[in-house]
Design a protein around this nucleic acid. Structure first.
Length: 551
RNA sequence: UGCCUGAUGGUGUAACGGUAGCACAACUGUUUUUGGUGCAGUUUGUCUUGGUUCGAAUCCAGGUCGGGCAACCA
């Protein structure tokens, strides 16, 4: 505990604010728009905002930024709450920007009364035109000079529903020549007749992000409002609103959003994958959504660990997917129950085993001395992996082949004597001798073996289905890849595989996380049933043999 | 050709004028009844040019390159 971990730039700011007495305690917020499911990028923001509060003894609000009814839905609100909870965080208050609609309307009226806002009858295209370009200043229009009384009346009529959608907007009167495009008389309110998931049809005018977010922060007395880099140009407007309204001064700070190799991270694109059927659903285990990762078998611990490791800074970044996988493996290695499952089987017959069958014992987790053992039935007919036998073994092959010996995990050492092929030349059966004095834990045989194989007794095997997932995309950096991101989808991102499992798997608690020996980490799928067990591959084990083979 | 940002190994992230460190990735070796895990080690870096200083990744000036900004989205 003596090692001082260095602080990121936001932690430094908070440390100073607390030390100087600017704040007695801090209040942060996580402000998603309920228009999609949360993804790993949101996890970074959640861990940051809730983590900051926890670290400095403050609190965090969960606030839904629900100012655009056309895109939002209660389904998303529910999923967001579930995901934040699952990640292990508790919010102080559950807030909605829509709860502030009355207050926001009053703020707008105040701005009009100060001569700082006006109703504009121009079309969207005209307004865009009049805003100019980053290198050319905008031009005003006649509406900019309307009287306060007229603006007040017009805005009241907008609210009362006297105008059609898009007919009028309320704009702030700031500076049409500002080098910051966001300060060129930004829109504050638009008319939009859409059913809101919370306020129903009560309103036909809705505040824009820039008129809702900062004020919502202020209303809740948020001290540190942390968002991503693309909002930097909005900060001037954020501050302007707070200053003109004379309300609680929340402050905005920006950090770089998460990008990850082989992954798309925008809600728009993720929505597209779902709607066009490229994946099953938002919680498809290949999706980078929190719900997808949960279904795939990622643990909340490992995601939090990942967010901790990637750090917080202001420079653009792209994190290796392998770091996330490392975090998952590291946690799962410690907690996963070991089981044996054979996916691509060939029959192994032990010719001199005349005991019939016996019950062997295998440790549930070698990383956990208190993990206990389970019963594993053994007999003279077993399933082993096809790739664990080679007719003409190469030099570094440590598995089975004519004349070679291996250890069967938690069982005996066997020596291969012969094998059979079918008409097409495929290996069908391998015959071996076992060494009775080599039993696991009481081996006196002294036979040196280099390989240990997993196996399943054929007579006792339980059929299961494995979903073997691979990355959804085949290029590292999708953001800088030319063309449509869907052109880079990996056609082999899901392989459904029939497999044989040891019987203990069927009886185990369904909530357990498993490591199928030498295969990877697996987690029971939400569609799995007692009669048809389905497991999702969370992540493979590291495979140095596969690398060796590629050479 | 405007404004705002940023630049440290392959990828991230520290060093706050004083030994460029850590993690992942890659590669060795070692241990191992998982070709897993563990352990030990190796390789690879301060965008550039000047300046200030005893001393610069850090401060200053110029340049280069990356990202963002012209939605009635957030």
């Amino acid at each position: 505990m003596s090692e001082e971990k260095s602080l990121n730039f936001i932690e430094e700011i908070i440390t100073q604010d607390l030390a100087s007495g600017k704040y007695a305690s801090i209040l942060t917020r996580f402000p998603p728009e309920p228009n999609g499911y949360l993804h790993i990028g949101h996890a970074k923001s959640i861990c940051l905002n809730f983590g900051l509060a926890k670290q400095f003894g403050g609190k965090t609000n969960l606030r839904f930024d629900d100012t655009n009814p056309a895109k939002e839905d209660i389904e998303y609100v529910d999923s967001i709450k579930e995901d934040v909870k699952w990640l292990g965080f508790e919010w102080a208050k559950e807030c909605y920007a829509s709860d502030y609609f009355d207050q926001l309307y009053t703020f707008a009226v105040q701005l009009i009364e100060k001569g700082l806002a006006y109703v504009d009858d121009s079309s969207a295209a005209e307004i865009a035109e009049q805003k100019g370009t980053p290198t050319a200043p905008g031009t005003g229009n006649a509406f900019r000079n309307r009287s306060i009384a007229e603006n007040l009346a017009l805005f009241a009529d907008m609210k009362a529903g006297k105008y059609a959608d898009g007919e009028k907007v309320l704009r702030a009167k700031i500076d049409l020549a500002s080098p910051n495009m966001h300060m060129r008389d930004p829109l504050l309110y638009r008319i939009k007749r859409a059913h809101h998931h919370r306020t129903g049809d009560e309103w036909c005018i809705y505040p824009m992000y820039d008129f809702a977010h900062g004020q919502s922060d202020s209303i809740e007395n948020i001290t540190h409002s942390v968002c991503t880099l693309e909002f930097i140009p909005h900060r001037a407007l954020y501050d302007w609103c707070i200053e003109q309204l004379g309300i609680y001064p929340s402050h905005q700070y920006e950090f770089a959003r998460l990008n990850m190799t082989y992954t798309v991270m925008s809600k728009r694109k993720l929505l597209q994958l779902v709607e066009e059927g490229h994946v099953e659903s938002w919680d498809d285990p290949r999706m980078p959504t929190i719900s997808g990762m949960r279904r795939r078998g990622y643990t909340a611990d490992s995601i939090r660990d990942f967010c901790d490791r990637i750090g917080i800074a202001k420079r653009e970044n792209i994190i290796d997917l392998s770091l996330l996988e490392f975090c998952v493996r590291e946690h799962l290695n410690k907690i996963a129950q070991r089981r044996m499952v054979v996916t691509n089987p060939i029959k192994l017959v032990i010719t001199n085993y005349d005991v019939g069958e016996e019950i062997l014992h295998s440790e549930n987790n070698p990383e956990d001395p208190n993990g206990g053992t389970r019963n594993v039935p053994f007999s003279n007919e077993l399933w082993i992996e096809r790739e664990d036998f080679m007719e003409e073994p190469t030099k570094k092959y440590f598995r089975l082949g004519p004349g070679l010996s291996v250890r069967l995990k938690s069982a005996y050492i066997i020596s291969c004597e012969s094998f059979e092929k079918d008409a097409e030349g495929n290996i069908t059966t391998v015959y071996a001798n076992y060494h009775p004095n080599s039993k696991s834990g009481q081996d006196t045989s002294g036979i040196p073996v280099k390989g240990t194989l997993h196996w399943v007794s054929a007579k006792h095997a339980v059929p299961v289905v494995l979903n073997e997932y691979d990355r959804l995309f085949s290029v590292e950096d999708l953001a800088s890849a030319e063309g449509d991101f869907k052109d880079f989808m990996n056609p082999n991102s899901l392989k459904k595989v029939e497999a044989y499992a040891e019987p203990a798997l069927a009886n185990d608690a369904l909530v357990a996380r498993f490591q199928f020996l030498r295969k990877g980490y697996f987690y029971q799928d939400t569609n799995s049933t007692k009669d048809k067990l389905v497991f999702n591959r969370t992540v493979t084990l590291k495979d140095t043999w596969a690398k060796e083979q590629k050479k």
